[in-house]
Structure formats: C-alpha cells, structure tokens
Design a protein around this nucleic acid. Sequence first.
DNA 1: AGCGCCCAAAAAGTATACTAAAATCTGATC
DNA 2: GATCAGATTTTAGTATACTTTTTGGGCGCT
Lengths: 216, 216
Amino acid sequence: MPRKSHRRRIYEDYLGRIQRGEIGRQERLVDTAIAAELGVSRMPVREALMQLAHEGYLEGTTRGFTLPSLTHEQVLEFFELRRLLEPRAVATATQALDAGSLAAMRDAVRDAESTLSSGDIMLFFRASEVFRNAWLAAVPNRELRQTIQRYLGQVQSVRMATMRDRPTHEIIVEGQRQLLDAFHRRDAVAAADRMLRFVLQAEESYLRLAPESAAR
Amino acid sequence: MPRKSHRRRIYEDYLGRIQRGEIGRQERLVDTAIAAELGVSRMPVREALMQLAHEGYLEGTTRGFTLPSLTHEQVLEFFELRRLLEPRAVATATQALDAGSLAAMRDAVRDAESTLSSGDIMLFFRASEVFRNAWLAAVPNRELRQTIQRYLGQVQSVRMATMRDRPTHEIIVEGQRQLLDAFHRRDAVAAADRMLRFVLQAEESYLRLAPESAAR
DNA sequence: AGCGCCCAAAAAGTATACTAAAATCTGATC
DNA sequence: GATCAGATTTTAGTATACTTTTTGGGCGCT
C-alpha cells in the first residue's frame, strides 16, 4: 500500500531534520529506537540511516549515527570547494532564474533584514536557506547543484554557529542584498564576483570565530 | 571472525570491478545471485550494492543494479565540473607530490607512450588510471579529491570509449607528458593551465565521437 | 583508592522468511 | 495476427531472529 517505501520516507524525513538543524550534535540515532517509535522493523530505518551516512549527512559510529564531526581542516577544505564552484553556479543560475524564484528571494532578503533589528536568529537562518535554495534550484547543471548540496548539508552546524555572530549577520544580509540586485539585473558577472567575495567573507568570519579550535 | 564485514568486502570487490571496467553495460547485478555465489545471505550484498548506488557507481532499477546510463547532457555537466575543479586540484598536487608518485607517473607515461605503437588499449587504460591516481592522491584537500573521484567513477565508460579513438589516444599521451614535465619542475601554474587544456581537449574528443547520440 | 578483568548490555551485522510489486509469459479473444 | 487479461516468475522491500562486536560497568584484587 505504500506508494513510497518506508526507507524512502524515513530517509526524506531525517534528511529534512538534518538540513533544518533539528538534530543535536550529541544526539545518537539508533535504528532500533527509531523503528520502535515508527512501528516498523529495523531494516528500512537502518537502510535510510546508512544512505544518509553514505551521502555525508551522518557519520556511522559503533554506537549509533551522529552528525559528522568536522575538523577545522575539513571546514577549510569545504571553503575551497565553495570558492571553486559557487561563483560559477550563481553565474549560470542568474540566467535561468524565473520570476517566482526572484520573488521568493526578495521575500527572504526582507525577512533577513528584519532580523537585524529583531535578533530572531532562527528566522534569519530559515530565510537564508530559502534564499540559497532559490538560486541553487536554478542552476542548470544538475551535477554541480548536487555537489554543492552535498557539502552544504555537512557544514550546516558551522553556518548555524557563525550566523549568531552580529558582524557576520550584517555581512550575510548585505551579501544577499547585492546578490539579489545582480540577479534582478541579470548580471551574471556581478553575481559571480559577489558570490566569490561572499564566500571569502564567510571564511574570514569562520576563522575569526573558531581560531584553531575544533570546528563543530 | 571476519575483521571486515561481508558488506565492506563485497563493496570493495565490486567497486574495484566497476573501476577496472570489468562490469558490462548490460550486466545486471542481483543481490540473490551474488549472495548465492558467495555463500552469504542477501543482506550484506544488497547493502553493498545500495551503497555503490548511493555513491553514483551503480543505478538501481526494478530489475537489478546496472551501470549508470549517462545522458549526453550529464556527460557535458561532468565536463563543467572537471573544468572547475581539476586545474586547481593539479596545482595543489604539484606542490605535494613525492618522489614515489613522480616515479609512478613516469612509468605510467612510458607505458602509455608504448601503446601508441602497440595499440594495447587495455594497457593504455590502466596506465592512465595509474597516472591519474598518482596525482589525485597528492591533492591535499580531501573533500576536493573525493568529489573528483566520485564523478570520475561515473564517466568511466565514456573515457573507455574515447580512448579507443586514435587521435584522442595521441592527445592524452601528449597531455600526460606535459603534465609530468610541469610536475617535475614543480610548476603549479603550468600544471593547472595544462590540465584545463587537457579537459577541454577531452570534451572536444567526446563531442566529436558522440555527436548528439545518447552516451550509452 | 587504583587497577585490571570479566561480564552484561547495546548496537551493528547477518541470516532467513515472508510480502509486495513489477516484468514476463501465456493463452484466449477479437 | 494483434492485443489484452491474468498467471507466473523475478526481484525489491520488510519483518524477525540470531550472532558478533563493542562498550561500559561492576567486582575483586593489590
């Protein structure tokens, strides 16, 4: 009777939770516990969790699955990938964005701006997700898009942490404003340039906030 | 008593077969059949095959796992990724290569040159693998390396096909010669430039040999 | 109290069995 | 001869039970 398999539904459920930052760093996902909660057997749960692990969203330990613990070095490595891929990605997206995506990004930037005074970090976080997902969905190269999505899922917790920092908060909102402007003007070159600057600024923020220490 | 799990051994076994091109395009990998052959149950085999599918090395169909069937568009998308990542990757590898890797690449280029007259395509193919794996292993950025490896596994069949073409054969050997020269001189800039040209040439070869048609 | 050893609990791994869905085959009907 | 319905087979999906490995804790020893 299930049009989608249990495995697939559980996979999508937990992928969403991870991407929305709903899984704590110390939380341990164990197949038997989840299976009992959902009223299914271990196997579909186990396979869903293993799939998430294979895709880098979780880390399999000998005592349940947890969020991957990134080292300082790994975070810097992801920033190198971002520098290489994201400028090109936004450039190609600029030429493919439709009116709906542009409107969604306008709303997202407005929400993000409002959090500068309200201090609502969770809204800021969600608005940033909306903004990013909107342009990312417009990237025509599917493989490029998936590659970016893969590592973005992994650095979720790092982004979460840096976004709580006030100067970083302002930098991100300003970056989104200018990217949006470039999108509206269909200026792919400006978008690429701004995105590269954006990534470099994010890296600086990270280095300033996490000097030497383990990345979380 | 198995130090490694069945799943892991089967995974590594079939990953190797795929990467060495030992799996035919029409071949269907079915867990029950493999399990019977190996004398184990379905589950470890199933999980190994699913892991390979999650990582892009196989495609799960309703009738067993097969090699992924790439569309023309997908192949072009992978070439875009290669243009973005591989020049940077070789540049950083240039500065990290040790003597052993350099020696391995010298031997590989020598083997590849010999196949220009002998026509031994399989030796040429293996030598190219050795050459590529040698510099790839020296890329310090682990995430970058893994990203490259992921898509290289998928375009295996396309590479196989283009390498049978005589002009392409010559282009590849010449590219390897010049890359090796840059590596020896520790000239990261030259290596990056040559790799970009190499990827562009490979793309041209592909377009010439597979005009419009599905990529198999 | 500190140390190690052994045992029990927890979780991964594997085996087996059953169910569901999809593809292929078969034969009847037009 | 073509086509379609149903049966059969093949394979994926799930459930359950058993085994192995790992970990943490208790217990005795010094």
